[in-house]
Write a protein that binds this DNA or RNA. Structure first.
Length: 423
RNA sequence: GUGGUCGUAGUGUAGUGGUUAGCACAAGAACCUGUGGAGUUCUUAGCGGGAGUUCAAAUCUCCUCGACCACCCCA
């Protein structure tokens, strides 16, 4: 056991995982580019207050999941637990209000939440997300959903389910809340301990409690969709029409409320439909947050966005792509025998670099057999052998590893020769 | 924050109170600075940490750290 280990819930990412990260990033970049989204990277740290105001004091994230600390200078900072508040802060700080609307931004990076780790849940995790600020039109909601759907499809997901709901806005939600609370109060005895607490702090969340008895209560509760104001109702109806036009497989979930305070109107989640249900949890979560920009000190600015958990995506696509990614290794091994050939080989390697041909070497080894052993392990189809005799003659040996056939060629022509073979 | 399972070389594992803690793979070296896949020989490297019980602890007890899983929450 190593003396020092990664902190709880954090891990080293090695090539084996990183290659999936890079693949996902590339898919995001291409799709972002197509739909006209600009990349943004906000700092890993923000002032704690930003999340208290933005994410919301009543949320689990702010109440018990933030990595917060005080700097030497006395500032209260927090490792970002989610992306939206930082992006809205940047939107305001960088004067993006004066850009043509909508302002479309995307991100890809690390986030931190202090939680007990488990499958698909880490204390440092990564997400990519898309945000569209400045436009109230329902088509924006539909396009955001479509973008996530397209990315996941491109990455090979087949059984995606989009769940969505509308949780109203500042006009209708307070009324609905009242109705809901008075109903829930009447059924208080049948709720779990947590929900009794939620009744005071965040009654909407009782709707998606996983406890059997609470679900029974929730299923009989007044449906939120019946209590939307005209504007919210119309908005939601339009979103659904767009989704249908786009042929996106959505289903309504009247109990989907999500845990962040800033959401209004449309909320959605995307997950893969597995036999066991939602598997490692939500892949994508998001929604409209028309009040957030104002809450953080800007003008009334409608916005909509979402984020996707990269680790969860990687965990799911990894088994799917087993064996699919092999032929990326080096194709050529350059072996040398003796001091003079070693010097010449070192120089020849540079020629290959300029010709953009990957070549493996083992200059630290002297014996030819150990070099060829390595070449064999690397599964290169060809090895080049440069010895004393060849250097003096200005030649080099090309050995075909599978057959053991060799031919000696002029060293000046070897690059061209190899290019032909491995092209 | 709550509960469950589990920590033995780099990896995977054997080991039920007394073993020089074993095996496989991996890694390194030699046979072998002029030809690989194999073989042989050798080497490196381990009981997560700390207390306790005992003549004796990888093994029993407690604490702690970590991992995994579930709840919770969410990406």
């Amino acid at each position: 056991m190593a003396k020092f280990q990664t902190p709880t819930g954090m891990r080293d990412l090695l090539e084996g995982d990183l290659k999936y990260f890079q693949k996902i990033e590339k898919v995001c970049r291409d799709i972002a580019d197509f739909y006209g989204f600009q990349r943004i990277e906000t700092p890993i740290l923000e002032t704690t207050q930003l999340f208290e105001k933005g994410t919301g004091l009543t949320t689990d994230i702010v109440q018990r999941q933030m990595f917060s600390f005080r700097t030497r200078g006395g500032d209260q900072l927090t490792l970002k637990p989610e992306g939206t508040p930082g992006i809205v802060r940047a939107y305001l700080q960088q004067g993006m209000q004066s850009l043509p609307k909508p302002v479309k931004l995307w991100h890809f990076g690390p986030f931190f939440r202090y939680e007990r780790p488990q499958a698909g849940r880490y204390r440092q995790f990564h997400s990519f997300g898309f945000e569209s600020l400045g436009v109230i039109a329902p088509v924006v909601d539909a396009q955001i959903i479509q973008i996530f759907y397209n990315i996941l499809k491109t990455l090979g997901f087949r059984n995606l389910i989009i769940e969505l709901n509308s949780i109203g806005d500042h006009q209708c939600r307070p009324y609905f809340k009242k109705t809901l609370v008075s109903y829930l109060r009447s059924r208080r005895a049948s709720l779990c301990v947590d929900c009794k607490r939620r009744l005071r702090e965040n009654p909407l969340r009782i709707l998606d409690c996983k406890q059997e008895k609470c679900q029974r209560v929730a299923r009989a509760s007044p449906p939120i969709l019946d209590h939307l104001c005209k504007e919210c109702h119309e908005h939601f109806k339009n979103v659904l029409e767009f989704l249908e036009e786009l042929e996106l497989p959505y289903s309504l979930n009247p109990y989907l409320v999500r845990g962040l305070d800033y959401y209004t109107k449309t909320v959605f989640e995307i997950f893969e439909d597995t036999k066991e249900g939602k598997g490692q949890g939500t892949l994508v979560g998001g929604g409209r947050y028309d009040g957030l920009v104002r809450m953080l000190g800007g003008k009334e600015t409608p916005a909509c966005g979402g984020a996707c958990g990269i680790e969860r995506v990687v965990n799911l696509i990894k088994p799917k792509s087993q064996g699919a990614s092999k032929a990326t290794g080096t194709r050529i091994f350059l072996a040398q025998i003796g001091q003079l050939p070693k010097r010449k080989a070192l120089k020849l390697l540079e020629e290959f670099r300029k010709a953009k041909i990957k070549v493996a070497t083992a200059f630290e080894k002297d014996s030819l057999s150990s070099q060829l052993k390595l070449a064999d392990r690397l599964k290169v189809p060809y090895s080049l052998i440069l010895g004393q005799k060849e250097v003096l003659d200005g030649k080099i040996i090309i050995r075909e590893m599978a057959t053991g056939k060799q031919k000696t060629v002029n060293v000046k022509k070897v690059i061209r020769e190899i290019k032909k073979k491995v092209a």
